[in-house]
């Protein structure tokens, strides 16, 4: 287990952000600089400086995908089919729970998008959901993922609010997108929240562009830390955004104080990414090394 992990920050980006983001927990720039310099003196090498990206370290749920075969049914269920209007986005795939589309092998969850005629759709893929099996209010939600690439690929690791009442629907439910990307933009991560008055094209969103690296060539850790009145988005060792009620449009409601469940899927086509083209490679897979959830501890 890796419950006490701090990320080593290797480059320039995070320190300034962290200081700006969470002033109350960090020393001012000058003293931080001094402390780190002293630290370096003592150890000779090891780390350069450290950005505290995450604060919550007590696990509440984890799946390391260490058992080959179908994913653990005590954690994961499935959305099957095409939903309403391609899951609201005119997506082109038919979701199944067949091993051709979703399986665990060699310590990795593999979600595979295939180009095949199936139940009237031109593609198949899978969407795993923890609805009715696992949900939580606040905490840290992270997964280690390698995404596919190419026009029309749309992998996502995200969350939806559990309805307060049977009639409550999106976007009032709330949606937190921990990781999504367009296959045709292999270096651009998108983290967002959606709620009433700030959904779809008007979601509160930020892109993080990888420098000299891509999302489809290796695994990266994508996560959020979520507490009352904030959602922090991070990737690997970089905290790249914080969203608070102040970021919402005037008069909008913050809908992130109740239980949310997890979704992991690989969509094909739809409004957000556009259709695949002749150069898009099929089949292709989204790989998930682990999913870990930690409880909110009131710190920070």
């Amino acid at each position: 287990m890796n419950s006490n992990k701090q990320f080593n920050m290797k480059k320039n980006s995070g320190l300034k952000e962290t200081l700006t983001l969470r002033k109350e927990t960090f020393p001012a720039l000058s003293s931080g600089f001094l402390l780190i310099a002293l630290f370096l003196l003592n150890t000779g090498c090891a780390v350069d400086d450290t950005q505290t990206v995450v604060n919550f370290t007590t696990l509440t749920m984890q799946d390391e995908f260490d058992t080959d075969g179908a994913p653990d049914s005590s954690i994961w269920g499935y959305d099957i089919g095409t939903g309403m209007n391609g899951w609201g986005n005119q997506e082109l795939q038919y979701y199944t729970d067949r091993p051709e589309n979703v399986t665990v092998n060699n310590g990795v969850l593999i979600i595979t998008a295939r180009k095949e005629d199936f139940q009237g759709s031109g593609y198949t893929s899978a969407r795993l959901i923890t609805q009715g099996k696992f949900s939580q209010t606040y905490g840290r939600f992270e997964a280690r993922i390698r995404v596919p690439y190419g026009q029309g690929m749309w992998p996502a690791f995200w969350m939806l609010g559990v309805p307060d009442s049977p009639g409550e629907i999106w976007p009032s439910l709330g949606e937190i997108d921990i990781m999504e990307m367009r296959g045709q933009n292999p270096t651009t991560l998108i983290g967002s929240v959606h709620g009433p008055g700030y959904s779809a094209g008007n979601a509160i969103s930020k892109e993080y562009v990888f420098q000299n690296d891509r999302m489809d060539t290796g695994f990266h850790v994508y996560g959020i830390e979520w507490g009352p009145d904030y959602v922090n988005h991070y990737v690997d060792d970089v905290l790249y955004n914080q969203i608070t009620p102040e970021d919402l449009p005037e008069g909008s409601e913050w809908v992130f104080d109740n239980d949310f469940y997890i979704l992991i899927n690989l969509a094909v086509g739809g409004n957000f990414v556009g259709s695949p083209n002749s150069e898009t490679v099929f089949p292709q897979s989204m790989l998930v090394d682990y999913v870990r959830v930690y409880e909110y501890n009131g710190l920070n």
Partner: peptide, 21 residues
């Protein structure tokens, strides 16, 4: 509020790291 900016302090820091490593 989170634009990633190199500021001068961090640049100096990198220099330090180099020399010590």
């Amino acid at each position: 509020k989170n634009i990633r900016v190199k500021n001068i302090g961090i640049l100096i820091l990198s220099g330090l790291v180099l020399s010590w490593s």
